[in-house]
Design a protein around this nucleic acid. Structure first.
Length: 590
RNA sequence: GGGACUGUAGCUCAGCUGGUUAGAGUGCCGGUCUGUCACACCGGAGGUCGCGGGUUCGAGCCCCGUCAGUCCCGCCA
């Protein structure tokens, strides 16, 4: 209750427990700031109301110790109020003090001095007990709790059942790498931790639980990023007898509820973009719509120009695409070089630059273009245009990155803007460059668009899926699809993906059997919950909204996982480890 | 798997072109102090410059390797 005391409490006798945030020892009088999860309150130890030995104790107590104080809440003298503190009008006048949990000097500070950087990430993770005491992280975890509860309330109120699915599941060779768990009773066999509850939730639909949700822990053994942890939480949703619109509406309602929990108003319905349009206009399937800067096709303007780079690209069937940056002409040569470096790092050979200044175009390719080029490119005075010549699969990622960086530099991003968009009609499959076969864009259970069923045989790459992603400010919040519920369609898609009937039976037999048992049409969506919490908490790393996160090397520094196990445990699991790589490295070092 | 950055006192950081005894703030310890709130003031302790090797008369600084953390690419159906 430390943080909740107010003027109205003045005169009441209270007993408060908390952690010593700071100590100010003035000699004859001592102040302790005592902190609990609700906030901080000042406790004053003064001979007028504090026995001498209690006062001596207060002078000796170390920060971060757990104390229990009894005393009377009093209004502070007018000149001693603290407007920076929610409890700053009052203080607790201590009569007693008990140190219930004396603390060693903290390895990292909890109460930071003004302007001080937080401790290094490694130390924060190693001393997580202390780091989690910081008010920022406490606020993040409180918000996370509220989002979890709001999710449960919202979905339960709409008839969705929370059903848990197994954590020990069947390994799947497709998709991300599995975390494996050896079986003790079945030598040589393994469970896998779920990458998502996908098949379980579909089979729940087959069993008649027509509305399901779960706050599902998912595990993927892939390399990490600031917004990617090896274990994470999904809001996993599935419903029967639904079409895309039902899921879209449900998802928008949930998003409204969750953002409201964080005090943000969200307008629905969200705008929508077909995947093909998103790629054409933004070069990416999760466009940031907080600003314009749409890409456009300038191939016609460059066609016939005697300029080697664009001529070669156009002759090879590529295009010249680019974007106009209003006011971008003021970028220095160096700044444009930096944008070009970004385009290059995304795979482009370079950027073709055109600057409109003083009513004329400037740039190395100007002399190859007609006199009406500026008008045809829609360029106004002071604009800069940047182009990439080549196939779309090169220009898309390059222009996407350039567009994002240019928007930042031109300060086109309105603070606080929330630009939601649905991206619809994803392709069903794409050709895997190295394997030379088709792979599912979403996953192998996604329903083909009913109008495109014939394309599965004739031109699979053009077939659309009934899949949808919801995107906020260029970040994917969630995605889902209507699933295949007809066993013959599922078998056709497996075939398309190069999965033989035999493989399909071995790997997904339980799904096919389920679909043959009488399956309703169904579909769903999943949201990355941690990322959502991070966004709403205004955090820049997932680690700040997870109580006990892993490092980018998937280590848990706090408890020390993963860890070696005694040989007896390994042999009970019928395992032998082979760390010969490390052994060879060590030997070479001698 | 690849790239970039970082690693100096408990914590946050500085340390010049390679040159005498490696510094500051904060925390910690001791002292003074009755209205502070980053209390103030005085004094003190505190260092494997991540680790290993090399270059050099001499390395915190240069080179190679390695470990850890972070960010990015690949990867993440």
């Amino acid at each position: 209750m430390c943080g909740s005391l107010r003027t109205a409490d003045a005169g009441t006798r209270v007993r408060i427990g908390g952690w010593v945030h700071r100590r100010r020892d003035l000699g004859g009088i001592v102040f302790l700031d005592v902190r609990d999860r609700e906030g901080i309150v000042q406790v004053s130890f003064d001979p007028r109301w504090t026995p001498a030995e209690v006062l001596r104790g207060a002078a000796a107590v170390g920060v971060e110790s757990v104390v229990l104080v009894e005393g009377e809440v009093g209004a502070r003298p007018a000149e001693a109020r603290n407007a920076d503190l929610a409890t700053g009008e009052v203080e607790v006048r201590a009569a007693t003090l008990m140190t219930l949990g004396p603390a060693a000097t903290p390895a990292i500070p909890v109460a930071r001095t003004r302007g001080e950087e937080p401790a290094a990430e490694e130390l924060r993770l190693r001393h997580r007990v202390l780091d989690l005491r910081r008010p920022e992280l406490q606020a993040n975890l409180v918000l996370r709790h509220r989002l979890l509860q709001a999710t449960r309330r919202h979905l339960s109120d709409r008839g969705f059942l929370e059903i848990e699915t197994p954590i020990l599941t069947k390994p799947t060779p497709e998709g991300a790498r599995d975390y494996l768990v050896p079986s003790r009773v079945h030598p040589g066999e393994f469970y896998a931790l779920p990458q998502s509850p996908q098949l379980y939730k579909q089979l729940l639909m087959v069993s008649g639980f027509d509305r399901y949700f779960q706050l599902a822990r998912c595990f993927r053994d892939e390399d990490l990023r600031a917004d990617r942890q090896p274990e994470f939480t999904q809001i996993d949703i599935e419903a029967s007898f639904v079409q895309r619109e039902d899921i879209v509406t449900l998802a928008e309602g949930l998003i409204v509820a969750l953002f409201a929990e964080a005090g943000l108003a969200v307008a629905t319905p969200f705008p929508r973009l077909a995947y093909a349009d998103a790629m054409e206009r933004y070069g990416v399937d999760r466009p940031d719509l907080r600003y314009g800067l749409e890409l456009f096709d300038a191939s016609d303007v460059f066609r016939g120009a005697d300029f080697g780079i664009t001529r070669a690209a156009l002759a090879a069937g590529g295009r010249v695409r680019g974007l106009r940056l209003p006011g971008g002409a003021r970028f220095s040569r160096k700044q444009v070089d930096e944008l070009e470096a970004i385009a290059k790092s995304a795979g482009a050979a370079g950027l073709i630059r055109l600057r409109s200044a003083g009513g004329a175009l400037e740039g190395p390719v100007t002399r190859f273009l007609g006199p009406d080029a500026a008008a045809r490119l829609g360029m106004a005075d002071g604009d800069l245009a940047l182009f990439v010549a080549g196939p779309d699969h090169v220009s898309n990622p390059a222009l996407d990155r350039v567009r994002q960086e240019a928007a930042r530099r031109l300060e086109l991003i309105p603070p606080g803007a929330l630009a939601f968009v649905w991206v619809l009609d994803f392709p069903l499959v794409e050709r895997d460059a190295e394997a030379g076969r088709f792979t599912a864009v979403h996953h192998p259970f996604t329903a083909p668009h009913p109008d495109d069923l014939a394309l599965l045989a004739s031109d699979p790459a053009r077939a659309r899926a009934v899949a949808y992603d919801v995107v906020l400010n260029g970040t994917e919040l969630g995605g889902g699809s209507i699933r295949i519920h007809a066993p013959d369609v599922q078998e056709r898609v497996f075939r398309l993906l190069g999965i033989t009937a035999e493989e399909a039976r071995a790997r997904f037999g339980f799904l096919l059997e389920g679909l043959r048992a009488g399956a309703p049409p169904h579909g769903g969506i999943a949201f990355g919950f941690d990322r959502l919490a991070m966004l709403l908490a205004g955090a820049s790393s997932l680690r700040d909204v997870i109580a006990y996160p892993k490092t980018t090397a998937a280590r848990a520094l706090f408890e020390g996982a993963p860890a070696a196990v005694p040989p007896e445990e390994l042999s009970a699991l019928h395992l032998r480890t082979d760390t010969s790589d490390e052994a060879a490295g060590a030997a070479a070092g001698d």
